[in-house]
């Protein structure tokens, strides 16, 4: 990206992240781009998981991220599709500091999809690190090697979603090896993407306990992060965590919003059953003729207002 040149720092450089330098298999030097802030790196957390993440991952991250970023926790991840992508992207949404450790050369970017994230990280004052020069292509081993840097840069790791066989386990092992702690987010026992995390919570990893995270405070307790600013939580059902809402809803409370009872009911059921399709909602709420018209009306209105969103034809609460 223009305006951002990569720089190389070796292990002896004062700018080299100290936590990484202390690890036994630390690279002799790394390339980096963007804003290298050692102060911010002191309070950092790795968020990793599967490439094929489900909607659940986004929901969890959107729930946790405001508090994490407001408390100046740096989010480190591995710059891949899925959980990594969501972690970086949602962290940036909430103006957090994020560090992306690339599994390929510092100037390599696989798809336009990832390139836009790459540019976003740089323009939002984030940091991009890689131990590979220029356009070094990704290989199977680079992904594994990258995990040790992710682990080395952070105080601990939170695995959001992982299948039974997952690269996240490698990051977790390295974290334990370097003296960090491993957290996992429990998920549905029927979801393949949560089988790995659930198993970790149940069995632990190499004799070490894996801490289940049920709420964001669990993370703060585990890593003894200071619990500073706390976002004012609205007790009402309708809480907006999105910052980029349409002009209709600013940061006003729910009382200012005109939401009818029908819409409240709709919201409630979409919240309860995430991922309902149009026909399913229709069946639950409307039984009379021509009701599809009013449902189209309500759903689009709720979408514009930012209460719900459509994903692959299904509806989710924001």
């Amino acid at each position: 990206m223009q305006g951002f040149n990569s720089d190389y720092i070796c292990i002896k450089d004062p700018r080299f992240p100290p936590s990484l330098a202390l690890t036994p298999d630390c690279p002799v030097g790394v390339y980096f781009k963007g804003n290298l802030d050692l102060g911010k790196l002191q309070k950092s957390l790795a968020i990793v998981g599967t490439r094929r993440c489900s909607r659940y991952c986004t929901e969890v991250l959107k729930l946790f991220m405001p508090e994490l970023t407001l408390n100046k926790v740096t989010i480190v991840s591995g710059f891949m599709y899925g959980v990594d992508y969501e972690a970086h992207s949602i962290c940036l949404d909430f103006d957090g500091y994020t560090v992306a450790v690339l599994p390929f050369g510092i100037d390599f970017c696989p798809t336009s999809y990832m390139t836009s994230l790459y540019n976003r990280i740089l323009t939002h004052g984030g940091l991009i690190i890689s131990e590979y020069p220029e356009k070094h292509p990704p290989e199977k081993w680079t992904f594994i090697a990258r995990n040790r840097i992710v682990a080395g840069l952070s105080a601990g790791v939170v695995i959001v979603e992982a299948a039974l066989k997952s690269g996240s386990i490698i990051t977790a092992r390295k974290t334990l090896e370097y003296g960090g702690k491993v957290c996992a987010i429990p998920g549905s026992i029927t979801a393949d993407t949560s089988k790995g995390t659930n198993e970790l919570i149940k069995m632990g990893l190499d004799g070490n306990a894996v801490i289940p995270v049920n709420q964001v405070s669990d993370i703060f307790d585990t890593f003894s992060f200071k619990w500073g600013l706390k976002e004012e939580r609205l007790s009402d059902e309708i809480v907006f965590r999105h910052k980029n809402l349409s002009g209709l809803i600013t940061n006003k409370g729910p009382n200012d919003l005109h939401v009818s009872q029908v819409e409240r009911n709709l919201l409630q059921s979409i919240k309860l059953n995430s991922g309902l399709t149009f026909e399913e909602i229709l069946e639950q709420h409307f039984n009379d003729n021509n009701s599809e018209l009013s449902l189209i009306y309500y759903l689009t209105k709720l979408q514009i207002q930012g209460f719900i969103e459509e994903g692959g034809g299904r509806y989710y609460a924001c």
Binding site: S116, L293, I296, L299, Q303, E310, G313
Partner: peptide, 21 residues
């Protein structure tokens, strides 16, 4: 208003198949 809302719903569905782009 209802006509516009319905028309919008036919435009936005496609976007929902594109993750984050």
């Amino acid at each position: 208003v209802s006509h516009i809302l319905e028309a919008i719903s036919y435009q936005t569905s496609y976007l929902s198949f594109f993750p984050n782009s």
